[in-house]
Write a protein that binds this DNA or RNA. Structure first.
Lengths: 115, 115
DNA sequence: TTGACGCATGCCTATATCGGCATATGATGG
DNA sequence: CCATCATATGCCGATATAGGCATGCGTCAA
């Protein structure tokens, strides 16, 4: 097998820089595909494909508006990522010296604990 | 081209579930490869390869300890991701009705603004 | 109905990834 | 120096991705 987890989850969806750009743009409001493509300097099919991925993981929603199709942000899916990375906050706040010490302590405790 | 941005950035590094698991485990302290592999139920080469990716993006560091090589967490690289997702916090906090309204307002303003 | 516009898809290529397996490399102990 | 443990790598295969290009489909206007 290759690439077990595919683009079908949020982590992968935002691993693509252009998709992140799209999300950022959509913070300013709904937009049709063409406009997004233009502002980001990509072709329309390319934008559509990225939007499809974003839609499949639930980060954007679309609604028809006459001839156009407006894409809008649904950022709720980003929350889990924010929280997951937040679980490491204490580690990047510690200075490295202290972090090492902390880590040593843990390892010590782990070994004494038997596992 | 395919997959323009590769595993050489932090977003891609943590897009892999097993790499995230490794990072979580490392919060409890430094560990040798074999132990990580065992606890996560993966083969040693597999663990080594994931660790290599994590090392290349700076999320883990390694140091020799006799015959072993201990891997330790360096979570600083996760901070940008935390902050990037944090930029969407107001969007997932808004109820969707209000969000739509907000978005409409922005769009309105954008159009009136001439762009 | 026809034409024009807006967008989604299909097909194809190049490439990168993950995984498995075997093996190279490194360090330690005798 | 040799055997052994710990880890890194190399090579291969299967698969999925991103992008390009052409084209299909739906909607609106005349």
């Amino acid at each position: 097998m290759a690439r077990a987890a595919t683009t079908s989850d949020v982590f992968n969806a935002i691993a693509e820089p252009q998709r992140r750009e799209i999300l950022v743009l959509l913070r300013a409001g709904e937009r049709p595909v063409t406009e997004l493509a233009q502002e980001l300097g990509m072709t329309q099919p390319r934008a559509s494909k990225h939007l499809r991925v974003l839609r499949e993981v639930g980060l954007v929603r679309d609604r028809k508006a006459g001839k156009q199709r407006l894409y809008g942000l649904d950022a709720r899916g980003l929350r889990p990522i924010h929280e997951w990375t937040g679980g490491f906050e204490r580690f990047w706040n510690e200075s490295f010296d202290r972090l090492d010490a902390y880590v040593q302590d843990l390892k010590q405790a782990r070994q004494e604990g038997g596992n």
